[in-house]
Nucleic acid binder design. Structure first.
Lengths: 349, 349
DNA sequence: TTGTAGGCGTTATCAT
DNA sequence: ATGATAACGCCTACAA
């Protein structure tokens, strides 16, 4: 080597200040800086002040990737939902984002498109990142997914429904009970020939349908011929089409329980177009109680579900668990409530 | 040191196979394994086969955190939207997720809640992660945000609207022109006293309002007293309330351009309740052309916007740019289309 | 309470 | 085309 080694050792980084720079400026070791950031209590007040000043003067911010590599923990909380279009999940996500608030955690959002296989793929990717926590939708994971969740080494929350045998924590409600409850209300209002229209028919839809069946079975009024379902994604226009088909096949039905509110809205529009009197000629009930249900004319009955709360609560449980706080209740049933309105006031005598 | 050093050097990892394990098994060096994964072309076919076999037999998967640290690039693409509840963004996100498909990139989703300051905060967090690309909503970033975007060292796409001076790339349309176009249609249908109701009034809403003004100014029919806006979040019930207020103050309006479809639906419901004939007594137009607009009774006119395509296209441009492909067009105007339906058929003579 | 030493798993650099 | 070496920035383990 001729001449002389210049001082610049080869460095690849973009030159942002590192923890070593802060340590040098503050006259302490790197680990002390690290502690000031994560465990201020374990550093003497004096040193802490110096270090904090150095951090500010350099504008130092920790590198999340280096932190994740060294600690085998990222600040990412993985969330998998089956749909982004379904406004049900928009509310859930809003709750999650509100809950995560100013915390350092980031939401990594996966869209499984209602496919357990896709969920499995996403889970494989997510777990590689060593997330701080994982939140998944529903309780019907594939065996492989379940294994990944169990071995992820982080808190796991299953949301949207409750059931036996949680992986870790759970926040939801019973779709079967909710379906049964709204159908009981229809019966109580005097409807006797109650149809069902459903789209997508994911596991939770299936359980709502089960509730419908149970309720009608108990009343001795079950009739499989007026249950109409499709695997197609739910939409307002599909609600219209399904009701139209249904009425052409079974003109004598006197009420319809729609698997969700989009379908119910479409059904209502179809009734308006065909001059079918709601609720006297046909009772209409939806599911989820989206905001528009109360505004429709006639206003539409539905089952209120606590979507925002499921998001908020599940994220809070996840974060609490990550931070080592004792989560007292590991399975939370948020329940539901009937929102009874004009559309199910009862048949004309 | 007494006795003998056991072979187990202290290792903290969970024992998942590393690139070194693969290299050992394949009888090559670690860097060769790395190359097989990222630049198969630079490795001889023979070695590549061996290495690939070793990878499979060990079930090796690279650690994204280590990769991000070493390469100063994560597989994360940061996306910031102002709302998750607004179904407009649900469609945009669906397009993005479809576009990202089987690629290795992950979407890190931030919710700015329509706050430029919150967007700034999120951008600070996101850029720390050295994302592969960033996608932000709108063109009204704060100066600090803009600086971060410019210095992020990755492709940037601004979406939802077009404008001068893009940070990097842009996919959107002109909200002003769209607003002007639907109002021109109302004029052409014979409406003369056209009101405006708007919620949230974010920058894009403002520009739609500007289009409304421009159109009416040109016709000499502008009237500030029938423009009704609120910063409150948009909703169906708000549409009902705004229209009710508006009609009580200005009963002689003959049409209303609603800032978005939720408001339009609420307005329609209010008309149904008050037995106001749409479109003869009152023309109603919305914005975005959500799926329900065509199903409503009467069907509702709106402005079709290509939300899914904005998501799909912006993500494709981002990924192409990341992968070094030449992105020919850096500003894409996806335009809009009028969806003319029953609700604006014209006033009764 | 504070510091030292070394590892986390991968990739960039430079040499062969 | 392949490899040795160091660097990426931080954290854990252990020592003082």
């Amino acid at each position: 080597m001729r001449i002389a080694d210049r001082g610049n050792r080869k460095r690849r980084g973009a030159g942002r200040p590192t923890i070593a720079d802060v340590a040098r400026l503050a006259g302490v070791s790197a680990i002390t800086v690290s502690r000031v950031l994560r465990n201020p209590g374990k550093v003497s007040a004096e040193l802490r002040t110096h270090v904090e000043a150095a951090i500010r003067s350099l504008g130092y911010v920790p590198d999340p990737n280096a932190r994740a590599l060294a600690s085998s923990r990222s600040d990412v909380i993985g969330v998998i939902v089956p749909s982004l279009t379904n406004s049900v999940f928009a509310d859930v996500l809003r709750g999650m984002y509100d809950s995560i608030g100013g915390s350092p955690y980031q939401i990594q959002l996966g869209n499984s498109r209602y496919s357990p296989i896709e969920e499995e793929r996403l889970l494989a990717i997510f777990t590689r990142q060593r997330p701080s926590a994982l939140i998944v939708t529903g309780i019907d994971q594939t065996p492989a997914s379940r294994t990944m969740l169990e071995q992820a080494g982080c808190p796991v929350v299953q949301i949207m429904e409750t059931g036996p045998d949680p992986v870790d924590m759970m926040v939801g409600f019973s779709h079967r009970d909710a379906g049964a409850a709204i159908v009981s209300h229809l019966l109580q209002s005097g409807y006797r020939k109650i149809a069902f229209i459903g789209a997508r028919m994911d596991p939770r839809s299936q359980r709502r349908l089960q509730g419908y069946r149970d309720s009608l079975d108990a009343a001795g009024l079950a009739d499989p011929s007026i249950v109409m379902t499709t695997p197609a994604p739910s939409s307002v226009s599909l609600g219209r089409d399904l009701l139209r088909d249904l009425l052409s096949r079974a003109p004598d039905i006197d009420a319809v329980f729609c698997n969700n509110d989009d379908l119910a809205l479409g059904a209502l529009f179809e009734c308006q177009r065909s001059a079918i009197d709601v609720p006297r000629r046909l009772g209409v009930a939806g599911f989820n109680d989206l905001e528009m249900m109360a505004v429709a004319s006639p206003s539409l009955s539905s089952v209120r579900t606590y979507r925002y709360d499921m998001g908020y609560r599940s994220m809070k449980m996840a974060v609490d668990a990550v931070q080592g706080q004792d989560v007292e209740t590991r399975v939370v049933d948020l329940g539901f409530e009937l929102a009874i309105r004009e559309s199910t006031a009862g048949p004309g005598k």
